[in-house]
Simulated assay, not measured.
Amino acid sequence: MFNIMIAVDGSPNSLQAVQHVVQLVQQGLRAHVVVAHVQKEASFLELATQDSELIANASVEAGMDLVAPALSLLQAAGISHEVEIRLGDIYATLLDIADEKACGLIVLGATGESMLGSILIGSVSREVARHSKVPTTIVKMPEVLDVDEVDGDLSQADTTM
């Protein structure tokens, strides 16, 4: 069976990526999904002042809460899946998960950042796509039409059926 990794961070963008994969499976793609979430590791100060095992457990619990909506979508669609929650450098750990689970495709939600923000901050989706050994799909959020962008007067719209 074809393994697909979906990177999930709890954002609407990552849920859009899950919905994209659900559509692919509903259209006939036979796949097993690996839902991947990576939490940043604790800082040196956190590790020095608190129990490292307690911090790691809290991070895993937080990760499970963030992936819960994605799991609900996959369960409702009857799609075979598993969850991988890890601590570490986000993009490198995602690539490790994809490699370990023999994923043939990685799917991520677009960050929606501006070009300047993406350049200054760095984009996980861009880095994963850049360094991945397998095809990577970056799913964009659908555009929302702003009322100010609509040509003409909405009151004159034809509403007959």
Rank of each mutant, 00 (worst) to 15 (best):
M115Y: 12
V139E: 00
A70R: 04
M141D: 04
L66W: 03
V8Q: 04
E100A: 14
L108V: 06
L71K: 09
Q16G: 02
L15I: 02
Q156E: 09
A92W: 15
D148H: 07
V18G: 03
A36R: 00
P12N: 11
C103M: 10
E61C: 13
H32S: 10
S72L: 15
T136D: 15
I55P: 09
A17T: 00
I90K: 03
Q75K: 14
A76N: 07
D89T: 11
V124C: 13
S59Y: 14
C103K: 11
R130C: 12
V128Q: 00
A77C: 12
S123W: 13
A98P: 03
L120N: 07
H37F: 15
I119W: 15
E61Q: 10
T93S: 09
R126T: 00
A70H: 09
Q75C: 09
A76K: 11
L94D: 00
A68C: 06
V18L: 07
L105E: 01
G63Y: 04
D146Y: 07
G28P: 10
A31V: 02
L87Y: 15
L45E: 08
D9C: 09
T93P: 10
A56D: 10
A157T: 04
D65H: 13
E46D: 09
A68R: 08
A98W: 03
V150R: 02
V144E: 06
V67P: 08
G112T: 02
S123K: 10
D158H: 12
V22S: 06
G152A: 01
S72A: 13
D99P: 05
E46G: 11
E61P: 12
H131P: 03
S52A: 14
N3Y: 15
V25E: 02
D96A: 14
R126K: 12
K133Y: 11
G28N: 08
F44G: 10
T160D: 05
R30G: 05
Q19A: 15
L74D: 01
S125D: 03
V147A: 13
A77K: 11
H131M: 13
Q39T: 10
I106D: 00
S11I: 01
Y91W: 14
L29N: 05
G28F: 15
H81V: 01
I6C: 07
S155Q: 06
M115D: 06
S155V: 00
A157V: 14
S14L: 06
N57E: 12
H32P: 00
N57A: 15
S59I: 04
P135Q: 14
L154K: 05
P69R: 08
A56R: 13
A76G: 08
G122D: 08
S43M: 13
A31E: 06
A31Y: 08
Q26E: 04
S155P: 01
E84F: 15
R126G: 02
N57Q: 12
D89R: 11
I90W: 02
N57V: 05
L47M: 15
S80I: 03
L105W: 15
G88C: 07
M64C: 13
N13G: 00
P142W: 15
I55M: 14
I138K: 03
A110L: 10
S132L: 10
L108D: 02
A42K: 10
H37E: 07
I121N: 05
I6L: 06
K140C: 00
L29A: 11
H81Q: 05
L29W: 09
T136F: 13
M64H: 13
V33I: 03
G10T: 00
T49S: 05
I85K: 09
D89E: 13
